[in-house]
Design a protein around this nucleic acid. Structure first.
Lengths: 231, 231
DNA sequence: ACCACAGTATGGTCTGACCATATGGCAGGC
DNA sequence: GCCTGCCATATGGTCAGACCATACTGTGGT
């Protein structure tokens, strides 16, 4: 008996295709908006079946790297895009549904992100017009679902104001994946809740005044109240 | 001319299959380790072609929800898993390579996460044996690649010690996706860098002593030094 | 100029076949 | 009785070809 043998790597065809496409994207310096060769052409070039090419493209589409559409124009076919958000949303939703993750872990992660984002936004003296718009829309909302729409916009605007796009992407995905829980929370508190309104205003004012510590504190208290958890 | 028409939603067959499979998983209360029907059986039940079923399963596999393997046993076929990490790693790597995200944004996000995780680990008085093991392995490393392996283990152990699995998943994915940059940074600083060693020890000791503030500070200084950025 | 229609390139889907792999079970030898 | 080796079978992996739906492109008629 010799030593440990490395397990035989069985590489599926579509994985090889995936690597070749990725390699080609990097080598050719393709950018968002550029178009990949057609499925039939790729299959012929790589000497594989069209279905293998399709599965590779499906993976890239799932990861938000390409977007496919039929037709004939220059925008048809597989076009390079950059939509990490949709993939991340599906990722969280599925792994939340399959009991792999607890809701409390996602909420805690959101708290971490939003404290950071609010602090950074305050430190940067970020523009608060997007926040004010969302606040006004929340005031006008007639039901919980509509309220939550603008609540998500409010909190994502804070994440965007951090100046870090990855933070914004993660925040949007988290909010989209826990949307039903947010609606339930708002229905429990009441759509016109004065306390909710005051907490949002407090966060907005802290950012506008450039007080990073106050912004972080306001976010913590808002989330603790909304989801009924201790810090 | 009437008002705005909602665009016709062209739902591709495999997306419908995807929804049905997800619905079935939830309704049947399937858990990790359970097996889905075979591709041919699913195709017949849903009255679609096998290729549509395959594309749906490919999406689920990409998102780390199922794992497919051939053969005949009870573990063959599409089995439910929970590996959000691989999907997240691919997601970050591709969107980093395709110029959608800047490295600095990922590093900043890592700083946010690791400050949080170290603080929480210290507050929880987490066990530091995994950290000590990684430290010893780093001391014994002979080259930068080997060093980075254990460096990743060290920092992921901190994330795990936060008690939040999502934090651990995100940390692993970030570290895996920026591994080449970490190797370059270690080569620049030197594998046997005393300063690197001291910074790691400082983080470990702060967590062991339960000093959350000191742990966060130590993490910040470590990352600022490693990646040569200002806080 | 403009418009209508045929041509065509493209993704989306289905079918059937075959290959590769891994298990289950049976037959034969010890 | 037990082990060994081979065959049957179930499953994913791949390919080829066909057809459909879609959306642009060019052409010819008005």
């Amino acid at each position: 008996m010799a030593g440990n043998w490395a397990p035989v790597k069985r590489t599926r065809t579509f994985e090889e295709v995936l690597a070749r496409i990725e390699q080609r994207i990097v080598e050719d310096g393709l950018r968002v908006g550029d178009r990949l060769p057609g499925e039939r052409q790729l299959a012929e070039q790589l000497q594989v079946g069209r279905s293998s090419v399709r599965e590779a493209l499906r993976v890239l589409e799932t990861l938000g790297v390409v977007s496919s559409s039929a037709g004939r124009g220059p925008d048809a076919g597989a076009v390079l895009t950059s939509r990490p958000g949709t993939a991340l949303t599906d990722l969280l939703r599925l792994h939340l549904g399959l009991a792999g993750l607890e809701l409390s872990e996602i909420i805690e992660t959101r708290l971490m992100i939003e404290r950071f984002a609010a602090s950074r936004a305050a430190a940067l003296r970020a523009d608060t017009s997007a926040l004010d718009l969302a606040l006004a829309a929340m005031d006008a909302a007639r039901d919980a679902a509509e309220f939550v729409e603008h609540d998500i916009a409010f909190h994502c605007a804070i994440a965007d104001a951090s100046g870090n796009r990855l933070i914004g992407v993660i925040m949007r995905s988290i909010r989209d994946s826990v949307r039903p829980h947010a609606v339930a929370a708002v229905e429990r508190l009441g759509v016109g809740s004065a306390r909710l309104r005051a907490e949002h205003q407090l966060i907005r004012d802290a950012i506008a005044s450039g007080d990073a510590a106050a912004a972080a504190t306001a976010v913590s208290e808002h989330l603790a109240h909304t989801y009924d958890l201790e810090l």
